[in-house]
Structures are given as C-alpha cells and as structure tokens.
Amino acid sequence: MPLKLDPNLSDPDGAYDLLIAAHDGLDKAQSDALNARLILILANHIGDLDILSEALQAARAAG
C-alpha cells in the first residue's frame, strides 16, 4: 500500500485542532518532546518501513 498523499482525514479541521490543542501549555522543549513521542507512536502504528520512508521523503521535500 503506497503512502496516501491525497486527502484522507474525515474531519480536517477537527484533526488540525487536535494537533494544536495537544500542545496547550507546553514550552518549546516539551512540545518538541511531545512531537517526537507522537511520531514514534504513529510510526509504530504504520509499521511499514517503506511507507515511513516515503513519508519522511515527502516531509523533507515540502520544507
């Protein structure tokens, strides 16, 4: 299964809101740590190294 780069979230605004709200009250270091933990949890959920690798490339390409 290839990496999905077409819209896949049923509620984009709600999802975005969740990500921002999770950082409420955190300083920069705490936010960075939260993001790292989140990435690890999602990477494990995906499980597939090819998809993870594609996602990393896509993220780097857009920056």
């Binding site: 960075d32 740590a33 790292a36 933990r37 990435i39 690890l40 949890i41 494990n44």
Partner: peptide, 20 residues
Amino acid sequence: RLFRDAVLDLAGRYAFARPL
C-alpha cells in the same frame, strides 16, 4: 537526543517502544 529521550519516555509505559 529528542527521539532517544522520547523512546525512553514511551518504553516504560508502552511495549511497542521497548524494541527501540
């Protein structure tokens, strides 16, 4: 270091992080 510490923070609570 950020990812290393994140793995350690997760590993105590969640089994998935222990192999990392």
